[in-house]
Design a protein around this nucleic acid. Structure first.
Length: 350
DNA sequence: AACGCGGGGAC
DNA sequence: GTCCCAGCGTT
């Protein structure tokens, strides 16, 4: 038996029942693959179902606003995925008549679609024998063939790609690729792989040498930078002062309560008061601290405190700034921990 | 090649 | 607490 045959036998007995495996519509595969980038299956399921109820076709998604799309993505992370998906779907509607292209290179030309995602869509939706090298595949093949190089290196990825290319079956490449995902998720897991359950142990060099726990090799990542923030909760005439983050960078386009980065945590009140005047043109007195969160991103750690403020006076609001009623707080996409506060304030109002 | 970009589940 | 996930785009 070949590697593919052994793997597929296992897959057809153990495949997960996932919402995006009901059919092979290329748009649905596309959406699922984007949502699954750096994101676990369990986290995606609910978002995928809600998305497909609201945006069942490329044409419907293409007509949606970026704000609504971000709202549906709120909490899933990596929000450029949502904007790129919207941009890409518009391109598919305008250039490809609403039909996702079948050629791998053309698929990869869409924004947000890289080598992995293009291979996944081409193989699953169009039965093309394209490799789809993700973290699972890198881990599985580094163990199967005892690759001791850092899997983040380009040379390692090229080597894995060559190996996958050699083993991918012409008949059902999509099943083969998805089988690797399921194997990586359930059996060939990062820590303490469950080799007793694995259909490929007879081919696995790491298993033969009993070094599966030492693979794959991955360079350690540095710890996130601490950022201390103070945010203002300004309630005036039944409305809260909020603003939209810049179009680029962290949490781009998401909404937040006006905040300032602190160099001196003791100066929170004065810094916040100054920022609210400079950036929002509102005069306030900073009151007591109401909420406090530690929120860790991949490369930043926010220590953010929310202060109740007393509104005194103000000029016209700058761009990307607004007064929102408690009811309206649930209508915008929120930036990270600001969402928790928005929910708490909306509840408090009722 | 290195970095920016989120959030949460498993241990 | 740590790890890392069905990665991509920019620099």
């Amino acid at each position: 038996m070949t590697l593919a045959a052994q793997l597929l036998d296992w897959y057809y007995k153990n495949a997960r029942d996932l919402p995006w495996r009901k059919d092979t519509d290329a748009y649905k595969i596309w959406v699922s693959e984007i949502m699954l980038q750096q994101t676990r299956v369990e986290a995606v399921k609910g978002y995928y179902k809600r998305w497909m109820e609201r945006f069942p076709t490329p044409e419907i998604l293409a007509q949606a606003s970026e704000q609504e799309v971000l709202h549906y993505w709120q909490g899933l992370g990596y929000y450029s995925r949502a904007r790129n998906l919207l941009t890409g779907v518009k391109e598919v509607c305008a250039v490809y008549n609403g039909k996702v292209p079948a050629d791998e290179a053309v698929i990869q030309s869409l924004p947000g679609v890289g080598e992995y995602t293009a291979g996944a869509i081409a193989s699953i939706a169009y039965n093309r024998p394209a490799p789809a090298i993700d973290g699972n595949v890198l881990r599985i093949f580094s163990r199967l063939f005892c690759l001791r190089e850092d899997i983040a290196r380009q040379t390692t990825k090229r080597e894995v790609r060559r190996l996958v290319q050699r083993h991918i079956p012409g008949q059902c490449p999509g099943d083969f690729n998805q089988a690797l995902m399921d194997l990586g998720a359930a059996v060939c897991i990062p820590l303490r792989p469950r080799c007793q359950l694995c259909p490929l142990t007879n081919l696995c060099k790491a298993y033969e040498l009993d070094i599966q726990d030492t693979l794959p090799v991955r360079a350690p990542k540095k710890q996130p930078l601490l950022v201390v923030l103070a945010a203002g909760l300004i309630l005036y005439n039944g409305h809260y002062l909020v603003r939209q983050r810049p179009e680029t960078g962290l949490l781009a386009g998401m909404w937040e309560f006006p905040a300032v980065e602190l160099t001196d945590e003791q100066a929170a009140a004065s810094e916040l008061k100054e920022t609210l005047w400079q950036e929002c043109r509102q005069q306030v007195n900073v009151g007591t601290r109401q909420y406090h969160y530690i929120h860790t991103f991949s490369h930043r750690k926010w220590d953010i405190a929310f202060y109740e403020c007393q509104w005194l006076s103000g000029e016209a609001l700058p761009e990307r700034t607004a007064w929102l009623s408690a009811d309206e707080l649930s209508t915008v996409p929120w930036a990270g921990p600001h969402h928790k506060v928005a929910v708490a304030l909306a509840v408090r109002e009722t």
